[in-house]
Design a protein around this nucleic acid. Sequence first.
RNA 1: CGGGGCGUAGCGCAGUCCGGUCAGCGCACCGCGUUUGGGACGCGGGGGUCGGCGGUUCAAAUCCGCCCGCCCCGACCA
Length: 477
Amino acid sequence: MSTDKLPSRSEHFSEWYNQVVLKAELADYAPVRGCMVVRPYGWALWENIQKGLDRRFKETGHENAAFPLFIPMHFLEKEKEHVEGFSPELAVVTVGGGEVLEEPLVVRPTSETIIGYMYAKWIKSYRDLPILINQWGNVVRWEMRTKLFLRTLEFYWQEGHTAHATSAEAKQETLQMLDVYSDFAINDAAVPVIPGLKSEREKFAGAVRSYTIEGMMGDTRALQSGTSHFLGQNFAKAFDIQFLDSNNELQYAWTTSWGLSTRFIGAILMTHGDDQGLILPPKLAPIQVVLVPIFKSEDEKTKVMSVVEGVKDELKDFRLHVDDRTEVTPGFKFNDWEMRGVPLRIEIGPRDVEKNSVAFARRDKPGREGKTFVSQDQLTAQVAEMLERIQASLYDRALAFRESNTHNPKDYDELREVVKSGWAYSWWCGDEACEQQVKDDTKATTRCMPLDQPQGEGTCIVCNRPAMKKIYFARAY
RNA sequence: CGGGGCGUAGCGCAGUCCGGUCAGCGCACCGCGUUUGGGACGCGGGGGUCGGCGGUUCAAAUCCGCCCGCCCCGACCA
């Protein structure tokens, strides 16, 4: 709770973000550098994210399981690119129970290796495939620079790991899960994302191909909000995941992995929100409706609270909170809940008791514009409709923002200019040197080659050689 | 690790250059009363030994040395 105003979102985006996370009580800094405590309000948001994803995972045939936090050091070393990618950021346990360990244990930065080991043990026949497992857990990556939710030493996520008999099936799984993420981001979080393929240099260490959903944040920077990897037979060969096919021939399995983390909370915050604070999408908001009773005298209190109780009861299907604090004024509560991003506020005061009405204040439209008085009749339907409208308008607004900040530069000079405050969508020859050139000149990196590509071909925005793919360039988190 | 900044009450800060009623301010917190449809007000309270250790001095938040920690900008990253 706080009485201070937030920094302006447009002028001090990063500071706005930090403060809103702290003041809305989503998370707090932990006593260990780079680590955070996810507070109840933030965790409730994460739980809703989990529900939205977990339902989709189950619907597509996946099961949950749990693998160990500790991984023997030599596991990481079995896949060359994997160890090169992750070794700089490993946390390693060298002492246990007061004794120096014979082999150091790595705190998992991701679980391909230990799950690969187990899959090798479990998979003998094509009849054992596919294996479709997901795990909800935490991982540790020793990052240099951290930021609440976006990049912390420890973070929570889910990681799916699947093994298949054929390359085609694994590729299909990879794309299916990318689609699950897109669907979740767009429909539940109202975060417009672009599903696409990562370049070689941006792909996951050990993957054959990495896909991503990229979102544009409120400062126009890009955020990789979820990833899905086709691992080919890389990990199968490193961990001997082999099976006999129906022709009695020994084959290596084809594996995938895909993950979405608490970073996604950052994506929601930075996509929506305004100078007043957060705006949470109704489908994921821990509190969808906050009820603020207003009264002066004891007599008014009695009448108002009786209506409040009735409304609370009628709206029991929504995630509702009654703010009955007496030590703060209604005005304070309005600001407080707006800062926390509750999508819909309902005010009930003496005038409403008289007129059989309540006041709706929708979070996505500030001030008077978002305030309407509605009848107390059929409140459930009215609230449901309003929440849907807010959900839709958040998505539309974010999409419009992304589109107005995405450019098709005509030449390299223009690209250098537009990526200062937006995304560039351009033809790219596929050469890593061109990618590097853009990064050196502008700090912008390639984000993804969208699955949905235009017809035909063009010339590379950097080197003018023929190009088959269009790709997004943007400064990223 | 390179560059910059900073550690004084729960939070945000002033005080440090020019050692000595400087341990203070705002918010938060507690009590009482009046308030309550857009961040209420009055009065009265509780709480810190100034990041740590050592040194200089009659005297250190203030000067000196070492150490620890944090934040911002770079290379890395879900």
